[in-house]
Amino acid sequence: MDRYVVERVKTGIPGFDDLLGGGFPRGTTVLVTGPTGTGKTTFAVQFVYKGAELYGEPGVIVTLEERAQDLRREMLSFGWDLRKYEEEGKIAIIDGVSSVVGLPSEEKFALEDGLNVEGFLRYVYRVVKNINAKRLVVDSIPSIAIRLREEKDIREVLLRLNTILLEMGVTSVLTTEAEDPKRGRISKYGVEEYVSRGVVLLDLVEKDVELKRYLLVRKMRETRHSMKKYPFEITEDGIVVYPSGEIY
């Protein structure tokens, strides 16, 4: 009997794929979690941008925390020209912020105010199919709860979101907040990690009288992986992970 071989999706994050046997399992849903300022948005956008730049895989970014124009400007600091790939039909950014703050959106893809969960999922599905996306980012889960007024039913919302992502066959990165992962709480609601097939924690540790960034793969189905903490940096070219420099 032939052994099942998991197809891998290269993330475009130097050093990270070495921890996962070559990358994310194709079609999986990965939660990237951590406190504010640890690099979650950069990690997620790098996954989509490098997918388009290096591997010819179109991607969708659902931005629910900052306007698309602000995201584009911020990512230019890494040399990532999102608009270039938008114009080529390789990246689509869904603006989920403008309507919330009461401003008209000038974006090609924008969520309308008052969308319920089903409307949100249908819209994302339509944009994914529009550009034949292979990668998807939703930044962030807490903003979905607030945006869709479904916080009390967050587990059900996430289950439905995860199900439709798996049905679409895209490899997805969802971001969430972890206020104090050192005390064991690695997501804002305490349920996000249970409906994701993978969990990557980004955090800070004090070492030699300064704060260092580290990354931990908490869970990744279909993958043998280390449970050690590995240092990473946010460089002028984006995130770089150092798999030979485990913290412990």
Rank of each mutant, 00 (worst) to 15 (best):
E74F: 13
V209W: 13
V100Q: 12
T163Q: 15
A133G: 08
V6E: 13
L115K: 12
Y123S: 09
E86M: 10
R221M: 14
L64N: 07
L166A: 14
Y248Q: 12
M168L: 15
V199Q: 01
E210M: 12
G114S: 08
G59Y: 03
W80H: 07
F16Y: 08
D203T: 07
G34T: 06
Y248H: 13
K152G: 15
E53H: 04
G245I: 02
R197P: 04
L204T: 12
F109A: 06
D81A: 02
T171P: 03
G56F: 10
V138C: 09
D70T: 14
G59F: 01
Y230P: 00
V60F: 01
K129Y: 05
R218G: 02
D18N: 10
F78G: 01
L19W: 03
K152P: 06
F120D: 08
S143W: 11
Y248I: 14
L159W: 06
G96P: 06
L20M: 15
A68T: 14
E88C: 02
V127M: 00
L111Y: 10
G15R: 01
W80P: 06
S187G: 09
V100F: 12
K90T: 06
K50H: 13
G190R: 09
Q46M: 01
K108R: 13
P104M: 07
Y4K: 12
K229N: 04
V48M: 02
L166C: 10
T38Y: 07
D139C: 10
F24Y: 10
E7W: 00
K10M: 10
D113I: 14
I131S: 03
F78C: 07
Y85E: 11
I141L: 15
G15W: 05
G184D: 04
R224K: 15
M168N: 10
D237K: 15
V101S: 01
E150A: 15
G114H: 06
R149M: 13
D139F: 11
L82Y: 04
L31I: 03
H225T: 05
L136Q: 00
G169T: 11
V32S: 02
D208M: 13
L211C: 00
L215Y: 04
G59Q: 00
R135F: 04
L76K: 15
V5D: 09
K182C: 00
F24P: 05
R160I: 07
Y242A: 03
A133Q: 09
E74G: 12
V32F: 05
H225G: 04
E87G: 07
E177P: 04
V200S: 08
L71A: 09
V60K: 05
K152H: 15
V200T: 09
T63S: 15
V6I: 15
A68W: 00
E118M: 11
L136V: 12
T29Y: 03
T11D: 02
F232E: 09
P181F: 01
R160W: 11
G12E: 02
E107A: 11
D2C: 04
V124F: 05
G51M: 05
T63G: 10
T29F: 06
G22Q: 09
M168C: 12
E88L: 14
D17G: 05
R72Q: 09
A92I: 02
Y248S: 14
I247R: 03
L216C: 06
M75T: 06
P25T: 01
L64C: 08
P104A: 07
R73T: 13
G39M: 07
